[in-house]
Design a protein around this nucleic acid. Structure first.
Length: 506
RNA sequence: GUCCUGUUAGCUCAGCUGGUAGAGCACGUCACUUUUAAUGAUGUGGCCGAUGGUUCGAAUCCAUCACAGGACACCA
């Protein structure tokens, strides 16, 4: 594994250190400041007459990123989580012999070191640390990638995220933002009185969305379990049970294709709010975005790639109207199955003629409208056929009290007034079963336990799901879901070996 | 799933119409006490993603496979 000659060289250096009585993996750290604090606290050194203060003593630690050895003195740049600091390391300031035999020969880029010293400003005007003691904390036996270009190969960046983080420190910012988004989301809903709950990840029936599940097996019970595709049906059981505002932030798993916006496991928040309707959800969603933008200090005219998304311009439009107003679909065809099929064909699109009217309207939306929705837009009043869990409109039973929120041409959230009529729910599931028989293998499963729960009465409730990964993509101006996941799903590097191994087991 | 492109030194990349492989960085050695991708000198480093084929000869042409990126398809 470590046959590479550069690695061998470095292992040898670690051995030399050991022979000199130096532990190359010491944990005796005495660090007393971060680099960021050091630079902030000592910003005044610049003003001092001799540009130094030898009475201020610090111990800093970090990984060596640059090393410039210039005879009897060296400049070293070390980096910790907070930032980068230049060290000035001169032979005559260190213990006798240390500079020539230990420092110059056995300490190198990639190693993690700890340095004692005081602040001063170099001739070139850089606030630095004047080192008078230095020790190695951790020897890196693998060399770092090239110092200027760093590591750009996306495959390596995703497979070895630690290297990506070492070499491309700006990547950390994306993940810090991600963490902030999740933390702020949690706080936002808690402050509104929502209770955070955890529901099962392994489901006997994969429900709450239309998607293919991952299957696993529980040995003790000898039953198959599905990794959840959505927590929806469990959260609604909690509303039946009497909780009035719950949310869950967690992973969902869908056994489908991978691309720039799909990873097999992804994070969402779902929240359910009793005695509210989807109209209330529109309001809380606007408030939520305002809260995020304030705390993340983002401009409300947010750049996203070539786009500028105006977060002061939330729009609201019913789906059918959006087809004509935004999609340019002639108004006389949008409620006619045969005409929609003809129109899709005219536009050289594949059409499944078994689709019902609602599904076809959904097709029209996906093809002609979705990508044009740049500023945040609530598309409302979805056809009942493609909304098996949403409540029907009181004035038009063909549509539901539902919206999806689109931003920058992408779906960010899905919400509706929940269907709480158990008999209607049963019929919808039966309709989904029929769709399944017609070849829609992603149609919703029948969940009679859930219907039974509804039969005890679920207060009128509104619920919403928000895709956290896509939200973070939007807020960090990233265009691949892999860039907002620390460890995105990757194919195994050596597929053959895996296949052989699994065959041997059988 | 389909199509396109890529895969060459630890990293970033050259390598034209086939003639046994090149740069920069890194690494080794030497010089250098204020550098900023330090500099100068010198040296080491490669089963050219894998397997077949065509050819006197393949990093280069062809086929298959693997992985990646992108586009499309599918998909909340």
């Amino acid at each position: 594994m470590f046959s590479n000659k550069f690695i061998q060289q470095r292992i040898e250096k670690a051995n030399v250190l050991r022979e000199a009585g130096i532990n190359p993996y010491s944990n005796q750290s005495q660090r007393n400041t971060t680099i960021e604090k050091f630079l902030n606290v000592n910003a005044d050194i610049e003003q001092k007459e001799d540009k130094r203060d030898a009475t201020r003593l610090y111990v800093v630690s970090g990984r060596i990123k640059f090393l410039r050895i210039m005879g009897k003195a060296s400049f070293v740049k070390i980096e910790d989580e907070s930032g980068m600091l230049q060290l000035y390391v001169a032979r005559d300031n260190l213990a006798e012999g240390f500079y020539n035999t230990i420092f110059k020969k056995n300490i190198e880029v990639g190693d993690i070191i700890e340095v004692h010293g005081y602040p001063f400003v170099t001739g070139q005007g850089e606030l630095s640390l004047h080192a008078d003691d230095l020790k190695i904390l951790t020897k890196a036996i693998s060399p770092l990638p090239e110092k200027f270009h760093g590591i750009t190969d996306k495959e390596v960046r995703y497979r070895k995220r630690y290297l990506d983080l070492i070499m491309n420190t700006e990547v950390r910012k994306t993940f810090q933002t991600r963490s902030r988004v999740i933390s702020l989301t949690r706080r936002f809903f808690e402050d509104k009185g929502f209770l955070e709950v955890e529901t099962p990840m392994m489901h006997p029936i994969a429900g709450g969305a239309n998607a293919k599940p991952f299957v696993t097996h529980h040995n003790a019970l000898d039953v198959d379990r599905y990794l959840r595709i959505a927590p929806e049906l469990y959260l609604k059981r909690l509303i039946v049970g009497g909780f009035e505002a719950v949310f869950e932030i967690n992973r969902n798993f869908r056994n489908e294709g991978m691309d720039a916006t799909h990873n097999p496991e992804f994070t969402s928040i779902e929240f359910y709010w009793a005695y509210k309707t989807y109209k209330d959800l529109i309001e809380i969603t606007k408030e939520y975005f305002q809260y995020l933008f304030e705390h993340l200090k983002l401009p409300t005219l947010l750049p996203y790639g070539d786009l500028k998304v105006n977060f002061n311009n939330f729009q609201e439009i019913p789906l059918i109207e959006s087809l004509t107003l935004i999609g340019g679909v002639p108004s006389d065809i949008v409620n006619n199955k045969a005409k929609i099929i003809a129109y899709l064909k005219e536009n050289n699109l594949d059409v499944n003629e078994k689709m019902n009217l609602g599904q076809l309207q959904g097709e029209l939306f996906d093809e002609f409208v979705e990508e044009k929705l740049i500023d945040p837009t609530f598309i409302t009043e979805y056809p009942v056929e493609i909304s098996p869990l949403a409540r029907r409109s009181d004035t038009n039973p063909e549509i539901t009290e539902r919206f999806e929120l689109f931003i920058a041409g992408r779906e960010i959230a899905n919400a509706f007034s929940e269907l709480n009529d158990p008999l209607d729910q049963l019929e919808r599931f039966e309709g989904q079963m029929a769709a399944k028989d017609c070849g829609d293998d992603e149609a919703h499963e029948m969940d009679s336990d859930f219907v039974e729960a509804l039969s005890y009465g679920m207060a009128p409730t509104a619920g919403q799901g928000i895709g956290i990964d896509r939200l973070v993509m939007l807020l960090t101006n990233e265009h691949s879901i892999r860039d907002v996941l620390l460890f995105p799903a990757m194919k195994p590097l050596n597929g053959d070996i895996c296949e052989e191994a699994s065959q041997e087991e059988e």
